[in-house]
Write a protein that binds this DNA or RNA. Structure first.
Lengths: 221, 221
DNA sequence: CTCCCATACAAGTAGATACTTACATATCGA
DNA sequence: TCGATATGTAAGTATCTACTTGTATGGGAG
C-alpha cells in the first residue's frame, strides 16, 4: 500500500522538465516566451520554415534548446502560435476597412490590397508560415478564416454593385482575386526594393482589372 | 616504386560501386534509369518533393536503394533531370504556338495559357519539382529559360500590337502575367475535377483582362 | 528562513533518411 | 569459355535535427 501510494504520487507529480500547458508562469517566464516567439519570427523570416531549426531559434533567443521546450511542446506549436497571431491581426485589419461603407468599390478593393501588402511587408515571416509550415488545426482554422475574410470582403462589395450576382459567383470571383494576390505576393516577397513599387501597382491593376468586368457583364452568364 | 604503382592503380581503378557519370551503360541499364525516372515522377507527383524519400523511389521502381545510386549521384539529380526534361519540353511546346503568326493577340495568349495548363495537368509532378525541389544549376537555367519563353511570348505580342511600348514595359507585363498564372495554377493543382473548368476560365480571364488595357492605354505613362 | 517550483541548461537520445560498402550475379566481347 | 565490367542488393553508416533527461539555480509565498 505504501508502494502504491508512492507510485501514485510519483506518477501524478513528476518533476516537470518538459512543456506543460497548465504550468504557472512568472514574469520572467512570460518574457522568455515572448522573446522566443520574437526570435522564431526573425529566424523564420530569414531562413524560411524548413531551414529554421529549433536549435537556431534557441540560439537566436540566447537560450538552450531545452529551455525552448519548457515553453512550447514542439516546433509546429511555435509556427502555429505566430501564424495564428498574424492571421487574426491581419483579418482584424481587413475587417476594419471601410467599416462605415463610404468607399467606392474600386477604392475599397484597392485599400484591401494595400492593407494586405503592408502587412506582409511588415511581417515577412508570415508568408513562409502560411505557405510552408504544417500548422495546428486551430492555426489552420485562423488561416482559413483570414482567406474567407478577404474573399467575403470582395464578394460583399461585388453584390452591393450587382445584387443579381449569386453568392456563389461572388465568392468565386473573390477566390480568384485571392489567387492573383498570392501569385504576385510570391514575387513581392523576393523582389528588390527597387522593383517593388512597380509590382505593387501591377497587383492593384491585376486584381481590379479582373473584377471590374464582373460588375458590367451580362446578368445571365 | 611498386607501392606507388599499386596505389596509382588502386586510385584509378577502384571497384565502381557508386555513381560514375562516365560509366558505360548497356540496354538493361538504360531501361533501369528510365524506370527510375518514371518511378520518381510518380512518387513526386503523389507525395511532393520533400515527402518523397529515395527509398520510396527505389521501392516504386522495384529496386534496392543502392541500385538507385548506381544511376544517379543523389536525390537532387533525379529531380533536376526530370525538371530539366519537362522545362525543355514545355518551352518547346510554347515556342511552337502560332509560329506562323496567324493568331490574334487574344487567341495567341489564350493558346499559350491552354498549353501551359495542359502540360501541368499531364505532368502533375512538374509543379512540386519547380516549386519545392532544390535544382542543379543547369536545371535552374532550364526553368529560368522556360519562364523567359512565357514572358517573351507575351512581350512580343504586346509590342506587335503597340510598337511604341518599350521592351522593358512589355517584359514587365509578361512577368506579371506569369505571376497570375502561377497563383491560379497553385489552386488548380489541388482543385477537384469539378472545380477545374471554372478555374481554367478564370485563368484566361485574369490574364487577358490584365493585358488588354496595356494595348489601349495612353502611350506615355 | 525555507521550501517549492518555475526557470535554465549541458549533454545527451531517438528516429529519420540520404547515401555507402562489401559482395554476388548477369552480360558481353574476344 | 573466360575475364572484365555492368548490374544488383543486404546491411549497413553518417548526419541531421527534433526533442529529453538529470541536475542546478533563483525568486517568491508562507
Amino acid at each position: 500500500m505504501q508502494v502504491f501510494t508512492y507510485m501514485i504520487s510519483f506518477c501524478e507529480n513528476p518533476p516537470v522538465t518538459v512543456f506543460d500547458p497548465n504550468r504557472k508562469r512568472n514574469a520572467r517566464g512570460e518574457q522568455r516566451q515572448q522573446a522566443l516567439l520574437r526570435a522564431a519570427a526573425a529566424a523564420f523570416g530569414r531562413l524560411g520554415y524548413h531551414q529554421t531549426t529549433t536549435n537556431a531559434i534557441a540560439t537566436e533567443a540566447c537560450v538552450s534548446p531545452a529551455t525552448l521546450y519548457q515553453f512550447f511542446p514542439n516546433k509546429e506549436a511555435i509556427a502555429s502560435e505566430l501564424a495564428s497571431m498574424y492571421a487574426r491581426e491581419m483579418a482584424e485589419a481587413e475587417r476594419a476597412i471601410d467599416s462605415d461603407g463610404v468607399l467606392s468599390f474600386v477604392e475599397a478593393v484597392a485599400e484591401l490590397i494595400d492593407v494586405c501588402m503592408s502587412f506582409n511587408r511588415k511581417r515577412p515571416e508570415f508568408h513562409t508560415l502560411v505557405v510552408d509550415a504544417p500548422l495546428s488545426p486551430s492555426a489552420r482554422a485562423d488561416k482559413q478564416t483570414l482567406g474567407q475574410v478577404f474573399v467575403d470582403f470582395i464578394a460583399v462589395r461585388l453584390r452591393r454593385e450587382r445584387p443579381d450576382l449569386s453568392r456563389f459567383e461572388a465568392a468565386h470571383h473573390g477566390q480568384v482575386a485571392l489567387m492573383i494576390f498570392r501569385g504576385i505576393l510570391d514575387e513581392l516577397t523576393v523582389a528588390s526594393a527597387h522593383a517593388r513599387p512597380r509590382l505593387e501597382l501591377a497587383m492593384r491593376n491585376a486584381i481590379l482589372r479582373y473584377l471590374m468586368p464582373v460588375l458590367t457583364e451580362s446578368p445571365r452568364k
